[in-house]
Design a protein around this nucleic acid. Structure first.
Lengths: 112, 112
DNA sequence: CCCGGCACTTCCGAATCAGAAGCACCGTAG
DNA sequence: CTACGGTGCTTCTGATTCGGAAGTGCCGGG
C-alpha cells in the first residue's frame, strides 16, 4: 500500500512534507472526505458506514479507516468508528465547503 | 473518461447529486486541490503549473484542467490558467484547512 | 528554414479502485 | 453442543486511473 500522507513526511508530489500538502494529499483520495463526513454525522460500525457511503467497496473502506486511524482522525471506540477531536476540527475546517457547494450549484445551474 | 462531478448530476457514490457530495468527489481526485491552490497563488501556463505541482504528469494535468474549466472553477485567460470568482471562493472555503493542518502536524508530532 | 518553447496527446506499465466472495469471530437461540 | 445471523475484515479479479516518457502540431524569432 502507498504510504499514508502525514505532515512532516514527504508525500506524493511534495518532498517537503508541508502539512497543508499532506492534508490535500490525504483528502485527495477517493472516499476519504465522505467517510469523515459520515462519521461526523454519526459514529458507525463498519457495515453501517459502508451502507451510508453508498456501498463503497469494503476493501477501500478498510484501507481508508486504517489510514484515518493512523493519522489520528478516527478512533475505534464503543460506538464503532468515530472522529477524534482532531477529526471533528477537520470537519469544522471544511464545513464552509457546504455553503460554497450550494453557491456552485446555483451558478452552474444558471450558466452551465 | 469518468464524468466530471457536478452538482445536480448523480456522481460516483451518490445518486442524489447533492452539491456537497459532488464537491467531495471533485476534490477527491488526485491533484485537484493542489492545482486549485497553485492557481490561487498565481495564474500560470501549463508548463509552469506542472513545475509548481512537483512535476505531476502532463496527462493528468490536462484532464484536471479540463474538468475544472468544465465546472467553472478555472478559466483560460491572458495570464494563462486562472481561477474564476467561483474558484477563488472555493479557496476561501477550504483555507481554514491550512490552519488545521498545522494543528494536525503539531498533534501528530507529540503523540504519533 | 531551423530552432526553441508551449500546450497538449498518445502510449503503456503501475497503482488504485470496485465488487463479489469468503473467512473468523462473536452473541444468541435452540 | 450446534445452528444462525451479524460484524469486521481479507482475498481475488477485472476495470479505472495515474505516472512518465515520448511525440505532435502550433507559434514566434533569427
Amino acid at each position: 500500500m502507498t504510504a499514508t500522507p502525514k505532515p512532516g513526511t514527504p508525500v506524493r508530489g511534495s518532498t517537503t512534507g508541508r502539512p497543508f500538502m499532506a492534508a490535500l494529499d490525504l483528502l485527495g483520495r477517493r472516499w476519504t472526505g465522505r467517510v469523515i463526513w459520515e462519521l461526523h454525522q454519526q459514529p458507525a460500525g463498519f457495515r453501517e458506514l459502508q451502507r451510508r457511503c453508498d456501498q463503497m467497496s469494503s476493501s477501500v473502506l478498510t484501507t481508508r479507516l486504517n489510514e484515518l486511524v493512523e493519522v489520528g482522525l478516527v478512533a475505534d471506540g464503543e460506538a464503532g468508528y468515530e472522529l477524534t477531536r482532531l477529526g471533528e476540527e477537520l470537519v469544522e475546517a471544511i464545513s464552509p465547503l457546504q455553503a460554497w457547494s450550494r453557491r456552485w450549484a446555483r451558478t452552474l445551474a444558471r450558466s452551465g
